[in-house]
Design a protein around this nucleic acid. Structure first.
Lengths: 187, 187
DNA sequence: CGCCGAGTTGAACTGAATCAAGAAACGTGG
DNA sequence: CCACGTTTCTTGATTCAGTTCAACTCGGCG
């Protein structure tokens, strides 16, 4: 839980009573690689904090498996659409490595937000950080070549490149596996 | 201000005292078409609610003018990156039509959030809606053809197609003006 | 009028996808 | 611990969507 509170406190101050309340609703779990955390087309009830390991969010489009998001340690994983809207979404989540996770139930989180002003603030900050990341990733996709996107990934999160199979990385970056393989070959 | 409170109350309940406080910090403004609301590479201090008219967020990349976001009436406009991070960003904002706007200063908004739990909740909801929209737009860009993207726009917000010049629409959709022109011709 | 920016249309070019066939890596069971 | 089959990755040839470059049209507007 150390990493979790470190990250949290980097976002917003954490009054002791909220820290207590938060600890009480966290559900620690340890799962092997390949564990399905969220089945596709189901409602996402949990927000996962990755303490150790790596998860990916994915969906199927025209028979293809598309990786939508990657969460290494220190980050939050969920199906954004489903978690916020409360409806089922095509996205699913699975672990790419053995993981230590902290799961927080949607209702528990909402409860904390209702009870603690500080919790509400914290969640707002998490959402704001999500917006920033999303905008960054969006910009990349908007007007950058395949090679540029790969180079950016290498620079920003080089660890991912080592830990994610090529095919998944390719769809994450919005290109075909063959293209990614060639880009790698020529760098 | 009617539309504003309508939208707001659709997101979260609004206690009377917050309604008062919010009214007090709103800065109504009426500006002609072509007004610069945010200069590029400056800090975005205001969140704008569009009561009437249309704004666009844009930036320059390699000498090109790229439209990043379009806000018709009923929506919030700001440079997400700058407004959240507090740093200057390459994005600027201008009006594409004469506009009636409600401007809210960052500091005023933060003040309300500190004072009113309900304000914090409201802003969280706004951020969450932003995340949903962004995700939607991201998906579009991720794996859809140029024609698909245009069709989606036609379906979701047909009004924009009439109101935004072709060149700006094209970069908004991530394609060249020529391509958009051809897509239009063949539909 | 004649200029000018916005939009259209055509032709050549190109980055990346697709199709196809091997090579390497991996896990599973004998 | 090796052999086998499966999956993942690489490499090559071809195709295609979309860009780029360029010429032309149209509708304002000084």
């Amino acid at each position: 839980m150390k990493l979790f509170f470190q990250v949290i406190e980097g976002l917003a101050p954490l009054p002791p009573e909220l820290r207590e309340a938060l600890s009480a609703v966290l559900e620690p779990m340890e799962v092997p690689r390949g564990t399905v955390l969220l089945r596709v087309h189901t409602v996402c009830h949990y927000l996962y904090f990755v303490e150790e390991g790596l998860t990916r969010t994915f969906y199927f489009k025209g028979g293809r498996d598309i990786t939508d998001w990657l969460c290494p340690e220190g980050r939050f994983a969920c199906s954004i659409v489903s978690f916020i809207s409360g409806h089922a979404d095509r996205r699913g989540i699975e672990t790419l490595e053995p993981c230590r996770l902290l799961a927080i139930h949607r209702d528990a989180l909402e409860g904390l937000c209702r009870k603690y002003h500080a919790a509400e603030h914290l969640v707002r900050r998490i959402a704001a950080m999500g917006l920033l990341e999303m905008q960054q990733r969006f910009d990349d996709l908007h007007f950058a070549t395949a090679a540029d996107r790969y180079r950016r990934l290498l620079q920003d999160t080089p660890a991912l490149v080592q830990r994610v199979p090529l095919g998944m990385l390719a769809s994450y970056l919005g290109m075909s596996p063959e293209t990614l393989s060639r880009i790698r070959a020529r760098i």
